[in-house]
Computed example of a mutant assay.
Amino acid sequence: MPHGDITHIDIPVADLTRAQEFYSGLFGWQIAAPPGFEDYPMWQAPNKISGGGLAPRSEGFEQPRSYVEVDSIDDTLAKVEASGGTVLMAKSPITDTSWWAIFEDPDGNHIGLYEGITDTAGQ
């Protein structure tokens, strides 16, 4: 995906099993936890493009969060701070080839960033 595309949406949930049943029944989403991420079931919409995860609800993560793919999380977080935003979570690894971070915009919205390649095919 190109820099700036929304690549993923996390939905905070209290009960993973209940949420999987709810969203798969409601929207027809395919939901499964990829190997190595058993506590993080991923959903994919019928269009095979839209997707995200069902993640445990926690303090500060109480509303769905969109993730934007960027060429460089480091460069983007520097621009966030220079533009009046706040880094909530610094760049952190997902896999050996992918990273994420979270920032807050000047209006208080939490947005995730994604950089890299996450390929679970063949695992």
Rank of each mutant, 00 (worst) to 15 (best):
P56M: 10
V80A: 00
T118D: 09
G85P: 05
G122L: 14
T97F: 10
T7A: 08
V68F: 06
Y40K: 10
T17V: 02
D71V: 08
E104V: 11
D119F: 14
T97H: 07
S58K: 10
G122H: 15
I9K: 07
K79R: 12
G116Y: 14
E69S: 08
G84N: 06
E59Y: 03
P35Y: 02
I31K: 07
I111G: 04
T7L: 04
W43E: 03
T17C: 06
G28Y: 03
D15L: 00
D10R: 09
I94W: 07
G28M: 10
W29F: 03
V68S: 09
Q44W: 02
L113K: 12
D71F: 05
H110L: 13
E81I: 09
W100P: 10
H3Y: 09
Q63R: 07
D5K: 09
E81S: 02
S92H: 06
G60H: 05
R18D: 14
S83I: 00
A19N: 13
I94K: 07
M42Y: 13
K48M: 03
S66M: 11
G36R: 06
S50Q: 06
Q44K: 03
E104R: 06
G25Y: 06
I111F: 00
D15A: 00
D96I: 11
D107L: 01
V13I: 15
W99V: 03
K79T: 08
G53D: 06
V87K: 08
H8R: 12
A82L: 14
